[in-house]
């Protein structure tokens, strides 16, 4: 009887490890609801307006930085140009994989796309 109980506990332990061991980490792109996405887009646009008000030069399509946990906002040309792929115009957290989600705005602060 003891053997069955031990085997049962072991199986549950393995199943728990399997389920949680494969859970998505913060390093994978998040799937968010439409309302959450709208909220994030709002945050990106707010950051854009703040930078513009400060007089930041946005012509080269710089990174606007982290806008929420796991999300960055980035400016790019539309159509995308090679200058947008320069490391200095991309978000470092995104490039090194720390952050996997982005909102991309054009030079006028309009959404190009997001993931």
């Amino acid at each position: 009887m003891k053997k069955f109980i031990l085997a049962g506990i072991l199986l549950m332990l393995i199943a728990t490890l399997f389920v949680f061991g494969n859970a998505p980490t913060s390093n994978t792109p998040q799937s968010v609801s439409d309302s959450k996405k709208q909220e994030l887009i709002g945050l990106a646009k707010k950051r854009y307006q703040e930078e513009k008000a400060k007089g930041t030069d946005l012509e080269n399509g710089p990174c606007l930085g982290l806008i929420a946990i796991g999300w960055i906002a980035d400016i790019a040309h539309n159509p995308r140009q090679s200058i947008d792929d320069k490391p200095e115009n991309m978000c470092q957290d995104y490039r090194d994989g720390t952050v996997k989600n982005f909102i991309e705005l054009d030079l006028n602060g309009q959404v190009i796309r997001s993931n």
Partner: peptide
């Protein structure tokens, strides 16, 4: 940033 799907690029 390698995709072209509805995402134009100037080269």
């Amino acid at each position: 940033r390698r995709d072209l799907h509805f995402y134009p690029r100037e080269i």
